[in-house]
Design a protein around this nucleic acid. Structure first.
Lengths: 334, 334
DNA sequence: CTGAAAGCGCTTACAG
DNA sequence: CTGAAAGCGCTTACAG
């Protein structure tokens, strides 16, 4: 239905090869001819078919981005950064959600392949270690962002979880806390293991023995955190501070504490991880570890472009988080 | 580079037509042959080229989605709903951001056209009335979501802004407030005009005269809201309640009020609009008008599919928001 | 400077 | 059941 190069050729009385050249501003075509052809194309509302072009150039100028959910504000920022640098080079983004389901992740990666995207970006990849080879064997370049399987995958960029949680825990130690709890995510999440390791590191460095009763699992969301706090309060020694796996957990903790009449930060200091957009607006505003999401998106896209350009790119780049001190933490009252 | 139908044909000793048929499970091909071909395809890691297929079928099974910014949680939910129903029918989503810039919006729509998407969804379209014809003349079906030009565009789905803000204002009136301020967005936003109209409607119905000193502009964000509150407090009659254009404005208002030692909701009731994910987590939690974002995304996608299926679809569907009463509003103390 | 030709990887009527 | 042929809309060497 849309007008093609042939229609224009007929109208202009030239061959379609000439039209193609004129539209590409080929130096071979004299300006007069080129302008005439361009005018006709304009009049006819011609829009080149990227599909046809891709078939011959073997480039789609499109990259596939797979995230767990686009509704997650974390991914929103990430994709924004990706889009920004993709657009600078005229690339489009094909978005797909994995729903944090490994099978679906593989399926959407496959769909990206069918569309012949030039490269793929996967955030929070959850395919099990068994499937990692499948990803590696794709003949399209792929880079992972904060992947959840520990494996040192082909190319990836990730936040330094150990370092970040150590920062948060050290902050709590410096405030004088010693009974510091850790509320994690569900079992098996690589990032949770790493953050827990950072928590342990800081405790060790501070000569504080690890108290298993103060280590507990949430679910990465507010609800799980509320339940975790209830459980935490049954421990013989009450924590005066808690380092949370992420901001949503911290928010749930604070919410529940307030319901129980426990003042934050006066009676309980709480740290988060992520620095989601609302962390600054909660009451009290959240002390947390900022992940430079947008920048991570940009960086991942740059890495992918480097790969596409055939450059020798580093395999993994690790990004540091930053401690943002706000109002949810306070010195231990003595 | 990827293996093609021809490679498989050679390996299987058949023509590429037969391979094509076998891979599509055509009833023409006997099971034995089909299985053999499928096995070879599997072994060779064959992935069909959607590009080549699209060229002949004239369908890409892709739809273009243009939003102002994907980092905006509002759009995140919307896109999630879109993706959900798109995926059910095997469609992919090509995402593009307009940055709320009309020129860029037109550019990305054009890029979607080049990619020969089967349809286009545009959220919060901001192209001026002058450009609306350009959108209407596309030969690809397009549906708009909450478009910002008042024009009754081809096909669209939108929240009923007048109704929503009337709901919020009526709620305030019922609590006994009479000095109710309105803090809007910047000048010229269609949705702001509509919400303001809803505010006026409720006031009229309640026999409350409109007080211009209580009508003020924010910028749709927390910062602008803080400034707006400062200005509001210089008015001769202080408001006891304020209806805000959106949640971010309400949050900024509450934040600033608390800084100034004004208790919310005891001394000042505040309503929002949108019901962003965090509205339930602020202190006090926000009374607001919920926009069913995900459902709106689903509905828009369904409308687009109806168009693609050649069905007679309604032109505009208007969705009602819902009043969610939480803690930021209280009866006027007497 | 310009056109005819080949080809990108498929689908699908048309013959057999 | 199967293959040869045409064609989707382009790009680009190859001749002239």
């Amino acid at each position: 239905m849309p007008v093609s190069i042939k229609d224009i050729a007929r109208l202009a009385g030239v061959s379609h090869s000439t039209v193609s050249r004129a539209l590409h501003k080929s130096p071979l075509i004299p300006p007069a001819t080129a302008q005439k052809i361009q005018r006709i194309a304009e009049e006819q509302g011609y829009t080149a078919s990227a599909i046809a072009r891709s078939l011959v150039t073997r480039r789609t100028q499109a990259i596939g981005v797979v995230v767990t959910s686009i509704a997650d504000p974390f991914n929103g920022d990430l994709v924004d950064g990706i889009e920004e640098v993709a657009n600078q080079r005229g690339y489009s983004v094909i978005l797909a959600t994995s729903q944090a389901d490994p099978d679906r992740e593989l399926a959407v990666v496959r769909s990206c392949q069918e569309r012949r995207v030039d490269g793929i970006l996967v955030a929070s990849s959850r395919v099990g270690a068994l499937y990692v080879p499948i990803l590696s064997e794709l003949d399209v370049p792929i880079v992972l962002i904060n992947n959840q399987h520990g494996s040192d995958f082909a190319h990836s960029i990730r936040i330094d979880n150990v370092h970040g949680m150590r920062l948060a825990t050290e902050h709590l130690l410096q405030l004088g806390h010693t009974e510091i709890a850790y509320v994690g995510d569900r079992f098996g999440l690589h990032s949770d293991e790493e953050r827990f390791a950072g928590y342990q590191d800081a405790l060790n460095a501070g000569q504080i023995p690890l108290n298993r009763r103060l280590t507990i699992r949430g679910d990465g969301k507010a609800d799980g955190a509320a339940a975790a706090l209830d459980q935490l309060l049954t421990a013989p020694t009450k924590p005066t501070a808690v380092a949370s796996y992420n901001d949503m957990t911290a928010l749930g903790l604070i919410h529940r504490a307030q319901e129980l009449g426990i003042a934050v930060p006066e009676e309980l200091s709480v740290t988060g991880f992520d620095d989601i957009p609302f962390a600054a607006f909660t009451r009290p505003p959240l002390t947390t570890i900022r992940q430079p999401r947008r920048e991570m998106g940009r960086e991942a896209m740059r890495l992918l472009f480097a790969l596409l350009d055939g450059e020798e790119a580093q395999k993994t780049s690790v990004i540091n988080g930053e401690l943002i001190v706000r109002g949810s933490t306070a010195p231990l009252p003595r």
